[in-house]
Design a protein around this nucleic acid. Sequence first.
DNA 1: CGGTTTTGACCTGCGC
DNA 2: GCGCAGGTCAAAACCG
Length: 306
Amino acid sequence: MEFTSLLDTSLDLNAKPLRIFDDNPVLKQEVPSDLFQLGRNVAVKEERDALMEELKRVNTENKQLTELLTVICENYNELQKQLTEYTSKNPASKKRKAEGIIKNGNRVNSPDESSSSDEDSSKKPKEEHIKAQISRVYARTEASDTSLVVTDGYQWRKYGQKVTRDNPSPRAYFKCSFAPTCPVKKKVQRSIDDQSILVASYEGEHNHPQPSKIETASGSNRCMTLGKTLASVSSSGATVALDLTKPKQNTDNARNSIRKIGSPEFQQYLVERMASSLTKDPNFTASLAAAISGKFLHPNPQTGKW
DNA sequence: CGGTTTTGACCTGCGC
DNA sequence: GCGCAGGTCAAAACCG
């Protein structure tokens, strides 16, 4: 990396002090003593060490995220294969309204994935609109736990519960209560085949930041904590299964947090997470502040310009 | 006391 | 038009 080599060449403390400033006519005149020069060199070295440490950490995080993406892609491909096999064996039956079918703990299809006749074509735009907004999250929980609560970082208010025909477990209806104007709704119901799996269907998009991110912004915890482990996610035809049997790792938290793989929301999540990792790190912010102030206080050692 | 949960009633869309 | 089933409302109960 360019700036590291730059730092390496400029911070040889065994060399003649302040060689880096030799080419700077301004500093040639203004540096008053060797002591002052040495002090400045030490400060720059500390700054460099901090930056190098941060660089290492960011590289490590980058590797973890790359691994995470690889796992997600593999799981996505695997599940899509299973989905194709399943749908070819079990053609989806007609369902009432815009409701997907849940089978074997997995979402099988969205409304418009079922066979559509020509007479349905007039409804397509509406259905496609719904498809774009609905996503599902699968959460593993204790079978004895009857709470129907999937913690996902948002605040929800339960406004109804119903027992549906195709599933003896009640379905709970939630609205996002963090922002009064937020249109997002959530339906939570146990999987008919595996009572330990909660299926949460999200409808709409939040028009506000995630509350848990706000809450943890001042803390040292870089990862979101979830009450129940999200088992798999799907969104509008893209379904991803995640292995949750492994012990907790850093990447697990990230896996749990992702709802829409490959979507702008997911990309935004990655960006936000990386940004928050940097900004919440006091070492990094201190180093950044020092670097910025140094930039203002010192001229470019290469060009001698400000 | 304010926010949340519970739960029966009501509304709405769809198939017959 | 009717019945069914999913979704929503809203009053009462509950809770911190």
